[in-house]
Computed example of a mutant assay.
Amino acid sequence: MFARHIAANALTLIGVLSFAGVAVVAWGKKQYEAPGPLAQAICLRVEGGADMKDVADTLEAQRAVSTRAIFAAGAQYSGRAHLLKAGSFLVPAGASMQDINEIVTGSGRSTCGTEINYRIGILRAKVEVNELDPETSRYVEVVSFNPAEDDVPAAYTEMRDDPSVRYRITMAQGITSWQIVEALNNADFLSGEIAEVPAEGTLAPLGEDVRVGMDRNELIAQMVADQERVLAEAWEARAEGLPYANAQEALIMASIIEKETGVGSERPMVASVFVNRLNQGIRLQTDPTVIYGITQGKGSLGRGIRQSELRRETPWNTYVIDGLPPTPIANPGKAAIEAALNPDDTDFIFFVADGTGGHAFARTLQEHNANVAKWREIEAQRAEEAAAAGN
C-alpha cells in the first residue's frame, strides 16, 4: 500500500514536471517569435569564427534580445546555428529573435556597415566608400576618389580588406566596351587580366554586388551572357514590321537610342523616330554615331562636333552613310534594347533637345525648325547667364 502511494506520487510529480516543461517550452517559443525590444535599427557585426553564443552576447549588450539564452537555444533548435555567416547585418527595430536568427544565417550578404561602390560612368569612374546609417537605412558617403587619377585615401585602404565590407560595381548604361575594360583594370579589388576589349554592344552594364578577388574575365563573361539573354528575349517579343534584318541590327539601334536620351520614358519615342527614318529611307543623322567614328569609343570627345567632322565619311557617320552603322556605338541597357524592338507608334521623324533634359519631337521639317529655334534661344540664354555668373 505504501509502495503504491509512493508510485502514485512519483507519477504525479512526473506529470507535473512534464506539464511544466511543456509550459516552459511554449513560453520560450512565444518569446523567441515575439517582437523584440530593439527601439531603433542596428548594424550587427558578426566576426569571422564567431558562434551563436557570441552573437547572443552582442545582441543582449545592444538590447536587441530580451534573453540571450532563448536566442541561442532557438538558433540551435531551428537547426540553423551552423549556418551563421560573418558580415554586417541590418537588424530592424522590433525584430524578433527568430527574425534575427534568419538574418545572420541567410545569404551572408552584408546589408549594412561599409559599402564600397565602384561607379563607372560615361565621363569618369569613381570609388565611393559609404556607411549605412541604421536609423535612416541610407548610405552616407565617407570618401570618394577616381582610381585612375587620384591618390588612394587612407579611409579606403583601412577598410578595403575588411571581410565584412560589401563591394558593388555600378555601370552607366551606354558605356563603351573600352571604357568598361579600362575601369575594371583599375579596380584593385579584382583579379585577372582582360586580354582584349569585347565587341561593342555585347556587355550588359553591371549593377550588382561582386566578390573581392573576383576574376575580371568572369565579370566580362557574365556581362556577355546577360546581354545575350536580354537581346534574345527582346527579339522574341519584338513588334512586327521592324526594319532590322537580325537581332544584331536591333542591338545597333538600341545603342544609338541609349546615347541619344537619358530620359527613360523617351526611349520608345526616340526609337520610333529612327525606325520611321529607316522605313522612309531617311538618313539617321545622329550625333553620337559621328562621335563614335572619331573616338572609337575610347573616352568622350570633350568638345562639340566640328562641321568638317559632320561631313567626314566614317563607317559610323550617319550624316553620310545610309541606314545603320556597322556596329553598336555603346553597350545599351535592357530598356533601350526593348525600346528598339518595341518602339512607340508615331509619325515623328525629327527631335531636338528641349532644355529640360528631354526632347521636342516633330513630324515636319517646319515643326522641327521651330523647335530648333527654341533650343537655340535656350542655349543663348544659358550662355549669357554663365557669362554673368563668371563676372
Score class of each variant (00 low, 15 high):
residue 288 P to F: 04
residue 203 L to Q: 03
residue 167 Y to T: 06
residue 18 S to G: 15
residue 143 V to G: 01
residue 59 L to W: 06
residue 373 A to I: 10
residue 69 A to C: 02
residue 118 Y to E: 03
residue 171 M to H: 09
residue 236 E to H: 13
residue 67 T to C: 08
residue 276 N to S: 09
residue 368 H to V: 11
residue 180 I to V: 15
residue 324 L to P: 01
residue 132 L to E: 11
residue 88 S to G: 08
residue 48 G to S: 12
residue 136 T to Y: 13
residue 352 V to F: 09
residue 23 A to F: 03
residue 114 T to A: 03
residue 296 Q to H: 15
residue 128 E to T: 05
residue 197 V to H: 00
residue 280 Q to R: 15
residue 154 A to T: 12
residue 30 K to W: 13
residue 88 S to P: 01
residue 256 I to W: 01
residue 295 T to Q: 06
residue 289 T to W: 06
residue 156 Y to N: 01
residue 183 A to T: 05
residue 185 N to H: 15
residue 124 R to M: 05
residue 21 G to C: 09
residue 384 E to P: 01
residue 91 V to N: 06
residue 324 L to R: 06
residue 5 H to I: 13
residue 51 D to Q: 03
residue 37 P to Q: 09
residue 316 W to Q: 03
residue 345 D to I: 15
residue 345 D to Q: 15
residue 320 V to A: 07
residue 329 I to R: 01
residue 186 N to F: 07
residue 98 Q to G: 14
residue 354 D to S: 01
residue 311 R to E: 15
residue 46 V to A: 02
residue 237 A to K: 14
residue 204 A to C: 02
residue 119 R to W: 10
residue 95 A to S: 15
residue 274 F to L: 15
residue 79 G to W: 14
residue 387 A to K: 13
residue 228 E to R: 15
residue 35 P to D: 07
residue 355 G to I: 06
residue 207 G to E: 00
residue 10 A to S: 11
residue 318 T to E: 00
residue 316 W to S: 03
residue 146 N to W: 11
residue 55 V to W: 11
residue 107 S to L: 07
residue 391 N to H: 08
residue 143 V to Y: 05
residue 315 P to I: 08
residue 26 A to T: 10
residue 237 A to T: 05
residue 32 Y to W: 04
residue 99 D to I: 13
residue 287 D to Q: 11
residue 347 D to G: 02
residue 240 E to T: 09
residue 143 V to N: 04
residue 35 P to E: 01
residue 88 S to R: 10
residue 34 A to H: 04
residue 264 G to M: 08
residue 278 L to A: 03
residue 383 A to G: 03
residue 39 A to P: 00
residue 119 R to S: 10
residue 146 N to G: 03
residue 176 T to A: 01
residue 117 N to K: 13
residue 287 D to F: 14
residue 270 V to A: 07
residue 364 T to A: 12
residue 330 A to H: 02
residue 10 A to T: 13
residue 89 F to D: 12
residue 169 I to S: 05
residue 187 A to S: 06
residue 87 G to C: 03
residue 387 A to F: 10
residue 133 D to P: 04
residue 16 V to N: 04
residue 349 I to S: 01
residue 150 D to W: 07
residue 244 Y to F: 15
residue 80 R to S: 02
residue 152 V to D: 00
residue 265 S to G: 01
residue 42 I to T: 06
residue 306 R to N: 13
residue 131 E to L: 14
residue 132 L to G: 02
residue 349 I to H: 04
residue 352 V to S: 03
residue 22 V to P: 00
residue 223 M to A: 10
residue 114 T to E: 04
residue 31 Q to H: 04
residue 125 A to E: 12
residue 172 A to K: 00
residue 384 E to Y: 09
residue 279 N to Y: 05
residue 213 G to Y: 10
residue 172 A to C: 04
residue 226 D to V: 11
residue 176 T to H: 00
residue 135 E to K: 15
residue 217 N to L: 05
residue 41 A to N: 10
residue 289 T to G: 09
residue 137 S to I: 11
residue 137 S to D: 12
residue 46 V to M: 07
residue 128 E to R: 05
residue 223 M to H: 05
residue 369 N to I: 13
residue 113 G to F: 14
residue 198 P to S: 05
residue 116 I to D: 04
residue 77 Y to L: 15
residue 47 E to V: 10
residue 390 G to Y: 08
residue 269 M to R: 14
residue 391 N to C: 07
residue 47 E to N: 03
residue 211 R to E: 14
residue 230 V to D: 08
residue 274 F to E: 01
